[in-house]
Design a protein around this nucleic acid. Structure first.
Lengths: 149, 149, 149, 149
DNA sequence: TTTT
DNA sequence: TTTT
């Protein structure tokens, strides 16, 4: 029945987020995130980098567009989702993405001139722009559009 | 600076949740949760149980009141919060609690007659009772009342 | 730079683990794991299931072979790894797996006749069979063979 | 039966670790870690800081002694443990700590001149100093001494 | 005070 | 392909 599907990453953006606007005023941001691990192989220090496809929806995507850039160190929390698509040759292929629920900027002091702690909220119907600081405790609608991508 | 404060527990409730109603129609649920670990000590199998004080606020507390009972196996996600209080002798004491963000019932088949996957949502202003299944994807206001407790 | 790459899943095995024995006495176990989520769509209750490819190495694979079976509810902790391979047509393809670090059996009472809390340990050179209960606090070598698969 | 007790923190050390050497050549490191959260209260930006007592054992403590200092940004993974003690007045008191399993230094570029990704390993009997880089993939014995503290 |  |  109900299960848990949670991903926690800390890594650097490989590129600026790519922003797309879908019908119904839905924003989607996507970018590659690198998580590197150092380990010893035969006595030498080796770095292994894993690349993750991060996807952010709606309000979270809009915050991402403002604050996330190539090279930034970021904490990302989300869930795994494998989707299927057909390549140009009509072959069914799979790709696994991390659909983010929230993120937090970490890292260099300069990053913190605009600290961000954003959340993709599946419940709220509308962002409350009223009380300033839209980048903090940001919430936004989620839902069936998840499968539009 | 922004940081991360996350707790993930899977364990059994030691008691039924204790429900309190604060001013402003704010509901608080609290209960002890046991997480047990088996390990080998001198070749013998030993069980070590850790007890956690779980606190749930508002809508999440109301869902807890309906679905969480002594003995249930539950996944709880939340954050650590240490608060200070004065004991009867006027001595300052500290207690550390896990303030839950969401929970998911796991476990026995009988538990799944009422499956629950609930979330405490700091953004939504009102629970949407309209479209049934209030226990699923439940959302509720959060905020400064966190410190009322 | 060092990063974090962590996956936490609670779900049911879709099949018994498939066990392979590689050169050098290395065991690999792999199986699909389903994590289901209930949500409301247009007022109706909908279940969405995500399938994850779980991979376990060495000693952890051996524990998996003994205790994990189709239908079991299990907590799995691990890391994401996307690897590349060529399909029969010589086309480069990608697949994303969760390489498990440890797992814990959850769930039905009958599951607990053989409770398991296993760990894939990148440090230990050999499993300590001496002091009984090999299924608990199980540790095993890890390392470069990770890329043999 | 078996449960999950996991804490994930990203924050800054409030002090240099305090290092203690117990009987049996057991090292213990402890330090306060701050995780801050920004949120909006009445339209103003407010920062709330939570302090955590982090404890590291054996080899992990030794790595901590070398690489962790006041102000450093660090990812810490561990488990909650509440222990009881008697204060000077003979009153039973409780304190909750995060017993770390591993940590990773994050943050400023200068931090990465000595990147660290350390693990407290409950299985390995001895650290392998042979192949250099003792700070990476560090492993060490764990066990019953956990309760010596 | 849970669970096995 | 799981589970409820």
């Amino acid at each position: 029945m109900s299960g848990i599907n949670k991903v926690i990453l800390v890594g650097h953006l490989g590129k600026d987020p790519e922003i797309r606007h879908l019908e119904g005023n839905v924003t989607v941001a996507s970018f590659p995130l690198a998580t590197s691990e150092m380990y010893n192989k035969d006595g030498r220090r080796v770095e292994q980098t894993e690349w993750h496809n991060i996807v952010m929806w709606r309000g979270l995507a809009e915050v991402a567009a403002k604050y996330l850039f190539k090279g930034k160190l970021v904490y990302v929390e989300g869930k795994l989702r494998t989707r299927t698509y057909e390549d140009k040759g009509g072959v069914r292929r799979y790709t696994t993405e991390v659909v983010a629920d929230n993120f937090t900027l970490l890292g260099r002091k300069s990053d913190f001139e605009n600290p961000v702690n954003a959340t993709d909220d599946p419940a709220a119907k509308k962002v409350d722009d009223a009380n300033s600081e839209p980048e903090v405790d940001f919430k936004e609608n989620d839902g069936e559009e998840d499968s539009l991508f």
